[in-house]
Design a protein around this nucleic acid. Structure first.
Length: 509
DNA sequence: CGCGTTTGACCCGCGC
DNA sequence: GCGCGGGTCAAACGCG
């Protein structure tokens, strides 16, 4: 992903491929400063969100936003809406007195250019200060992370001394696992359990091509499925970890023994939430204890894609739609679908990252990290390790609680996981890799939040608050929370996302 | 006619 | 071994 900070047409690319816009830092920042991130979702969704009022941008902002999108020559000059935003009288020195005998058109042009120049200068200054704040936040978080990692390492080493020499401790394995530049590679266990996901019966002939398909996303996203969880005997026999990883990659999406599932609870009247993928229904059953039937869907975006999902309404509250995803897509996905796929993959990988042994209790640390690393997660996610399949549930039906928690957050949590991520914490890696930011597998929270937005427009308020806190608008003092630039807590009333004073306008593109 | 959905049958794992 | 429940298959059906 790439975070684009656009100021008068100048983009500072931080990270993130998606696009979402933060408009108006207003008051503190002149209206011409537009911070652009991106677009997790489709145009439709964005419009829907905007219409739902989750994006309290003023008409002026919308206009600017549209102008930037249109990219027409008329607007494309710099992206600056000059005419609409007269500068304060004290513009910078570049201004010169315009000769009176110049043509009016030239005067206008010169004035325009001067304004642009001063705006760019001003915005550069702001960007620099924002960057400073981000850097400070990162440093603080990194320090904390290293501290925790050191403690954990000491603990692991102490435990590891009890084990065989030469056999990496679980902690080391986890660390190694998380240091992998690729997706989270769950340690494969020696005996490769038959790979097909639940296609146990030989009568069900799965096309051989399925096995030959190189799981596309598995190479780019964290695994959803664990091949298996036990400490690898073959690893102990000295087999190459690389081989192990490759095997893991090849078979990870289809492990019959323990497959992670990500369940998303969201309020929706529609029979199925639109996650950007194409699904084909292949079955429906009445589940015990629920009057609502459970529908089974299979991804049809590619032949042999192993991803399946179950959709069922909650028995207690039929307005809640529970969608359970399982498996990794083996094909490229459209952006809108990628968001959900990443979310579920990350959540599942995170869940499984703590379950590299058969002990359910070991899931807790990893999950705990996720659950505690973010104020959202603590209320959004729940684990069910006792179920036949390890399942992580993202509950997006409790927006108010999330917001309250967000406001109460004591620690400088970076909600967008810009630096380190909950997912990474369980691994507690030590070493230079630990400081590398923006790795694909570290985006779980981003995507979790993203997913939250896709299904719950109100959540944008919380995200806007979080972003505001992260961006640390220069000179801004968030009334209630006060002070700490890295702390969460802009004064946003949960039920009213519109915040005329803090003016962090958030819109989904 | 092709594609997606429906629905009853079947398979499998698990608990008793 | 048996029954139950979850999950999947595949023929039948409906729709455009």
């Amino acid at each position: 992903m790439r975070l684009l900070i656009t100021c008068s047409g100048t983009q500072l690319k931080l990270d993130r491929p998606h696009k979402m816009q933060l408009l108006r830092f207003e008051d503190r920042i002149e209206p011409t400063c537009t911070i652009t991130e991106v677009d997790f979702f489709s145009q439709d969704h964005r419009r829907a969100v905007a219409e739902a009022g989750a994006s309290p941008a003023s008409p002026k902002d919308h206009q600017r936003e549209e102008e930037e999108e249109e990219d027409s020559p008329a607007h494309g000059l710099t992206g600056i809406n000059i005419g609409l935003n007269p500068l304060p009288s004290n513009t910078q020195a570049g201004q010169s007195v315009i000769a009176e005998n110049e043509k009016p058109e030239n005067k206008v042009q010169i004035l325009t250019l001067q304004r642009e120049l001063s705006q760019v200068n001003e915005e550069n200054r702001r960007l620099r200060s924002m960057l400073d704040q981000l850097t400070k936040s990162y440093t603080a978080l990194h320090t904390q992370l290293l501290h925790v990692m050191q403690q954990r390492e000491v603990h692991e080493i102490r435990q590891g001394q009890d084990g065989k020499s030469g056999v990496p401790s679980r902690g080391e394995l986890l660390a190694h696992q998380f240091m992998e530049p690729g997706p989270t590679r769950l340690l494969n266990t020696g005996e490769r359990q038959d790979d097909d996901d639940g296609e146990h019966s030989s009568s069900r002939n799965k096309s051989s091509s399925d096995r030959g398909v190189v799981p596309f996303l598995q190479r780019h996203l964290p695994h959803v499925d664990a091949s298996s969880e036990h400490m690898s005997p073959s690893l102990e026999e000295g087999k190459s970890p690389t081989l192990m990883q490759e095997r893991s990659t090849d078979t990870a999406s289809e492990a019959p023994c323990r497959r992670a599932r990500v369940s998303v609870r969201a309020r929706s009247d529609a029979p199925m939430i639109n996650d950007g993928c194409q699904w084909r229904k292949y079955g429906q059953k009445m589940a015990k204890g629920n009057p609502c039937p459970r529908a089974y869907y299979r991804c049809t975006m590619a032949i042999g894609c192993p991803v399946r999902k179950q959709v069922q309404r909650c028995a207690e509250d039929k307005t809640i739609l529970v969608t359970t995803y399982e498996g990794n897509h083996n094909h490229p996905l459209p952006p809108a679908a990628t968001v959900m796929a990443n979310t579920t993959s990350s959540a599942a990988a995170m869940l499984l990252s703590g379950s590299t042994t058969s002990e359910d209790s070991l899931i807790a640390p990893a999950a705990g990290s996720f659950l505690h690393a973010s104020p959202y997660a603590s209320t959004m996610a729940a684990l069910s390790a006792s179920a036949p399949f390890p399942t992580i549930t993202l509950d997006l039906t409790q927006t108010a609680n999330q917001l309250q928690l967000l406001q109460r957050a004591q620690h400088p949590v970076v909600p967008l996981s810009m630096y380190g991520l909950p997912q990474k914490l369980p691994g507690l890696m030590v070493g230079p890799q630990a400081s590398l930011p923006f790795r694909p597998q570290q985006q779980s929270m981003v995507e979790t939040v993203t997913a939250a937005i896709t299904t719950d427009p109100n959540f944008t308020a919380a995200l806007a608050a979080a972003i505001t806190s992260v961006m640390g608008v220069p000179g801004t003092t968030n009334g209630a929370s006060g002070s700490n630039a890295a702390s969460i807590g802009p004064a946003i009333v949960p039920e009213s996302p519109q915040c005329p004073k803090s003016c962090t306008t958030f819109s989904i593109n």
